[in-house]
Design a protein around this nucleic acid. Structure first.
Lengths: 114, 114
DNA sequence: TCAATATATAATTATACACTAATATTTTTA
DNA sequence: TAAAAATATTAGTGTATAATTATATATTGA
């Protein structure tokens, strides 16, 4: 297991961001695969602006990256972030979120690119 | 390493509590040893009510326990809490906080009981 | 080029949060 | 038993946060 030591302030900042069910689940989903905004809207059954605002917070902190693919913007986890190993450790204590994406796929709502 | 899997909501709740520099440091300190309120007041240079309110949040969540020893009330980490293994993993990514207590001790402000 | 789709941003509002000031409670000690 | 010390609680205040609504931007496809 990789280990990074991060200043308390920075850890607190990351934990504050992840101390929200929506954002924490987002990160759990992104650990499994890239997702676009409309997939999050489906998974969370929340409004698109609300989803975008959550993603913006994660992006502003550098925890996720965005990449446009045609009409969609895909988000991915930033494995280069100094807190990424910490986040991985966190996620080990949570149920796997991938079933949410599988449910999407079953409904034909998963966006596949490339 | 012990492993516990906790529901997303519960993890988010714990992370929200620890997403505050003061409370996160408190937990880091308590992982090393019990502390009483006046020690926290010294370490954080914050008002006593503010410290008490932070401790109350941690206590309400069951993350810490309190125990009166004479005129002092000592707080300790609750190793029985379902999120304790998660917290231990978190703390591994932070600098050790014990030097703060050593500094207190050097000033003769550490409260030793028993 | 126009309509539809996907996404972002801005403004607003209601709620949550952290701190301070004031006060209450408990314990020790003189 | 009265005063001091340690801690908790309550009320008030300013700020942060999350959601909604409205609007703007960018891309695709007819």
């Amino acid at each position: 297991m990789e280990k990074t030591v991060i200043e308390v302030e920075q850890v607190a900042h990351v934990l504050k961001l992840l101390g929200d069910k929506t954002r924490l689940t987002m990160v759990g989903l992104l650990e499994g695969s890239e997702c676009c905004v409309c997939e999050f809207v489906e998974v969370f059954q929340m409004s698109q602006p609300s989803i975008s605002q959550h993603l913006r917070k994660l992006r502003d902190a550098g925890l996720v990256r965005e990449k446009r693919k045609g009409q969609w913007i895909f988000y991915s986890i930033n494995k280069q972030h100094i807190a990424y190993p910490l986040i991985q450790d966190l996620l080990k204590h949570m149920p796997d979120q991938k079933e949410k994406l599988e449910a999407l796929e079953a409904e034909g709502l998963r966006i596949i690119c490339d």
